[in-house]
Design a binder for these strands. Structure first.
Lengths: 186, 186
DNA sequence: ACCTGAACACCGTTCAAGT
DNA sequence: ACCTGAACACCGTTCAAGT
């Protein structure tokens, strides 16, 4: 019962594909799959063998970044009050969205896919933790859920880098104000 | 100096193209330009002659709908308090977005294009009127501008029809709460 | 002045042949 | 078991030839 070992060349090809995709996506927004294969030095079929869909590839490309956001949630909660932790987490998401335009789409489409599978997924769970803490201490409205927030911060995928610099934080403030629980709420 | 009259067949073709595009877009999200030309019974070149870009065509397809939204703003303001007028206008935008998925993209991309030309455009002006009224009577934060609001309601273009039914109004409420001016604001 | 539609470009995706 | 790359499909866009 030895584990079905992957052939060495397959592992190597997989890494090369991811690296090529990363290199290409940082210099422009669109990602041409044939270009990825060419740069990685593999046939197009090899790309499809490793990553059946474009999303599979992008998920892998942004894996580390998404992980960092996921890990940040409990860390922030340990060091700040819930509402402040959420605000700081938003800020972090905005920073990622500014530099790596695709992270955010990967995050949201990931959440969407996971939602249909009756699971929140890693990012959804992280956000859920933040929201629950804020509801528990009465600083966040009780009628807000993860999907609401994902939809609201989706504006980050609509703006260019320059506009994000001057406007993203402000719009996030407006959103936070909408999520805040008021004295007269039930 | 008679106006340079358009040839009758050109006018006719233009109408047929718009009608074909409307018919096709109501039955599915994407719009294939060659398909539009085929259904309209014109050559592809004719389509490009009348509508150099895809956006030009879409703007024309949704022209009536956008006009209705523009006209609604002053009407609502005449009959309701500013904040309520804004809430009702949001509701109307959401209703359009639900049925005609593309209206909203046309609206936002229109605003974006107009913004770069240092003008708000028709929809931007309508929204500007609503915001100004709310700021004047102290119900809307003074640090909010048209672009902020357009970005916030952009979530409408991310959701499917079923989800819009159960969630759009709620998320719009959250946004309105974020735009509302508080007692302690400066 | 306007129209037609063949043709080109571009990119995603598949699959027969190979190792 | 995995890889290659020719080939096909699809769609946007152009342009020479026509009326």
């Amino acid at each position: 019962m030895t584990p079905p070992r992957r052939r060495a060349d397959a592992t190597e090809n997989r890494s090369r594909i991811i690296e090529a995709a990363q290199a290409l996506i940082t210099r422009q927004d669109e990602l041409r799959l044939n270009e990825v294969a060419k740069r990685a030095g593999v046939g197009q079929g090899t790309l499809y063998r490793h990553f059946p869909t474009r999303e599979d590839l992008l998920a892998e490309v942004y894996r580390h970044d998404v992980d960092e956001l996921v890990v940040a949630a409990p860390t922030l909660l340990a060091e700040h009050k819930p509402f402040e932790a959420l605000a700081l987490w938003f800020r972090r998401v905005a920073d990622y969205a500014r530099v790596k335009r695709g992270v955010f789409s990967a995050v949201t489409s990931g959440v969407q896919r996971d939602l249909s599978g009756h699971s929140l997924g890693p990012i959804g769970d992280a956000l859920q933790t933040l929201l629950a803490a804020g509801k528990a201490d009465g600083t966040i409205r009780s009628d807000v859920d993860v999907r609401d927030v994902i939809l609201l911060i989706g504006f980050l995928s609509h703006i260019e880098e320059a506009e994000a610099d001057e406007r993203a934080h402000h719009v996030l403030e407006l959103i936070l104000d909408g999520l805040r629980r008021r004295a007269d709420d039930s």
